[in-house]
Design a protein around this nucleic acid. Structure first.
Lengths: 211, 211
DNA sequence: TAGATTGTTAATCGATTAACAATC
DNA sequence: TAGATTGTTAATCGATTAACAATC
């Protein structure tokens, strides 16, 4: 019961992010109660799955009424760490890296970018929003001084692993990999892959062969 | 045997995209043969899973040698539709939309952006690379005239569904959703979610509670 | 109260892994 | 040949779904 969180299957965690997005929409619309069936319908799941998932939370629904949206939002935020402010650096100041650094959504959700780096000397000193692009030499210093949590890898595949290694050696706690290549990291450093291109390939398969 | 493709579980399709990325790297390095064990080690899987997955393909390995990388690349590309040129439009010319339109990776992989749209009249006519930003009114015309396959939704959550509806009515075949909100579409229109923010939340959970 | 909805157990379903004969 | 690696079957494992008593 205490901290079942660690035992949650990845599939459940993944769905919790969707419940959070949905329940935040409901809260914004001043809808106070939601049933597992409503959530299921909205996200294309079964009510059974929703109830099973929500049973991992320290939060109970109410017979005949469902789940109170405000409370549900709070516990989902807590379990997903959405109530924490994280510090991120972005390595690679190409179009993708710059977009990320400028994308309001991240800081709005507590993912605060405190540095952006590029290997190209010509880019160093140029501004991306409020941040000046720094050389990759400075990565260890910036990470240590700011206690940065998350490193975002927005460099070409060919240098993704070496950038990851540098971030890991500098004491990063987790990585978001936007490159298409697989990154090897020690077990205690979680790596999540963005997989936009992979998603497009999955879409492409469906379009080509149907479903 | 003929077209087992349609029956592949989603989990298999998802891994095939990773095999493709890996085998392309190997081909670029002039490595001619790869065993299921090598692939498994590189991607953090078991050799059993890899062989099982590859058995869906019309392609055989060779005892004692493994899989020929060139041939494997070809069949993986074919099954993922990576050998097809697709036409895409991007709706939303914010930082994310612009980055996508400019990101070389997409066109290099056959996902060609033929139009970018925004609701803000002040942005209309401005250039993003070679493309001039168009008003959302023009979406149906551009999709019909260019036979556009894929629509990319890069607008705020609040307008994501209405943009999706417009794209669907205009005859789009599939959607890539970069907004965090769930999109409802008819069964024959596949929607894939990019889930970058969701990935960060999953990372955030792991950082907060460990694993 | 009657009816709706939860929480949870048990059953089902599907995906992963182990094992091993076939093969080069 | 001996040894390595595939392809495939069967066993295991885990996740989803169904069912239903408890409850408000």
């Amino acid at each position: 019961m205490i901290s079942k969180h660690t035992e949650m299957p990845q599939s459940v965690i993944s769905r919790l992010t969707r419940y959070l997005a949905h329940v935040q929409t409901l809260c914004a619309q001043d809808i106070k109660w939601i049933s597992s069936q409503d959530i299921a319908d909205n996200l294309g799941l079964t009510s059974s799955t929703v109830r099973q998932d929500l049973s991992y939370l320290d939060f109970s629904g109410v017979s005949k009424r469902g789940y109170e949206t405000g409370g549900l939002e709070k516990v989902l935020s807590a379990i997903l760490g959405a109530d924490v402010q994280w510090k991120m650096v972005v390595v690679g100041a190409g179009n993708l890296g710059k977009a990320l650094a400028l994308h309001e959504e991240f800081s709005r959700r507590g993912f605060n970018i405190v540095g952006i780096f590029d290997a190209d000397p010509k880019k160093i000193g140029k501004k991306v929003g409020d941040l000046a692009i720094m050389g990759q030499r400075e990565i260890p210093m910036v990470i240590a001084e700011n206690k940065v949590d998350i490193g975002v890898i927005a460099v070409p595949s060919s240098s993704a692993q070496s950038v990851a290694d540098m971030l890991i050696m500098s004491g990063i706690k987790g990585l978001l990999n936007l490159a298409l290549t697989h990154i090897v990291a020690p077990k205690h450093i979680p790596v999540v892959d963005s997989r936009v291109v992979a998603s497009l390939l999955e879409l492409s398969h469906t379009l080509k062969f149907g479903r």
